[in-house]
Write a protein that binds this DNA or RNA. Structure first.
Lengths: 195, 195
DNA sequence: CTTTGATTTGAACGAATGTTCATATAAATT
DNA sequence: AATTTATATGAACATTCGTTCAAATCAAAG
């Protein structure tokens, strides 16, 4: 018996997913070859198959992990309170979380069509659970009489689209800090859904 | 001399761009082969090169044409008026236009990274011109004292992201008509930027 | 040091890629 | 009917693709 601990797979394994994430985010899943990923890791293409059964699994693993992490992080931030308090918390959480992980977010939104049907269904279900968090906040606000909700599903999608869009233009070295961006978006979200 | 009029290229030419648009929107530029496009047109792959110098030109032509059409349509709708009137006009125009051309819009937002650097610069400049239309409306509203603008560039991007997001979930056969969707989004946009 | 087995290499596989081109087809002018 | 030329074919090109696998490598256990 040998090589149970201290083997390279502990190191190479994560690096494969890491390289795949960076390359998929930059060039797109279909445009990235297994050989490019291998080169980024510093290994031959054949070695990748010790860590993934195929290329498709790299993509679906990245997506599932992202959605799982997002849902877990969100659950950790959830507190009881008024709808307005919850909405502010959700807004600030969403922006902060997405700014910190622009690569994962980019992949999660751009590469859905490159998922196998079954993988797509699984990832879509996780995404739907996250969206439902916001929708139930908006519904609570409507019951409290503080939010003007015509169709809670549409308002949910509109708010999420607005918030997630921040990843397409925000640069850490840019004019505004993440805190300032958070504040501006929170102002807009609050006004957009308020009565 | 022969074949100046009535030749097949009048028919095949547009069909090539049309097939490319549909397939790029569905599967992504990198995932679509010239042979798939040819099959959709009902022709052999070699014949495509009577209508495009290469695959990249198909993408950049689609994008430029879309941005040109968008800017021209927008120019045709532009009227003098208050900032609020202009914003409503912009909002309704944007949603209506984007709902009618979901394939073009999808490509224009998803395939930017597959453009050659020079093509990217050209398309990005057109997109920027369109965004500037909205930004100047927001600035006018700030001067009039009716809009609360902290950073006009951010508010511009936020509004556009929210509006464009409608293409990701709207289905013509769905629960709501385009008119109803327009109305809901206009309510949200107006409130989001108002003082 | 030898053994053991996890890890990596490097070559090979068939299939698919974008593009080219000589050849064939067919429509419109002469 | 003969000629001309735009259009399309179908085979071929050099690469690259995802994936497999026997053989080499190498670190830890005995």
């Amino acid at each position: 018996m040998a090589r149970t601990a201290g083997s390279h797979s502990d190191i190479t394994g994560p690096r494969v997913l890491d390289a795949a994430m960076r390359l998929f985010a930059r060039h797109g899943y279909a445009a990235v070859s297994m050989r490019q990923i291998a080169k980024e890791v510093g290994v031959q293409a054949g070695a990748l198959y010790n860590y993934t059964p195929d290329k498709q699994s790299l993509l679906s693993d990245l997506m599932r992990r992202h959605m799982d992490d997002l849902l877990a992080a969100r659950a950790a931030h959830r507190h009881p309170g008024t709808a307005l308090e919850k909405l502010e918390e959700f807004t600030r959480f969403h922006i902060r979380y997405h700014l910190d992980r622009s690569d994962e977010v980019f992949i999660a939104y751009m590469e859905l069509r490159n998922l196998t049907p079954e993988n797509f269904i699984a990832v879509e279900a996780l995404r739907r659970r996250y969206e439902n968090e916001l929708e139930s906040i908006l519904r609570q606000g409507a019951e409290e009489g503080v939010f003007a909700i015509t169709d809670s599903r549409i308002e949910t999608m509109a708010v999420i689209a607005m918030l997630t869009g921040v990843t397409t233009w925000y640069r850490a070295e840019g004019r505004l800090s993440a805190d300032e961006v958070e504040g501006i978006y929170w102002d807009m979200v609050r006004k957009a859904v308020s009565v």
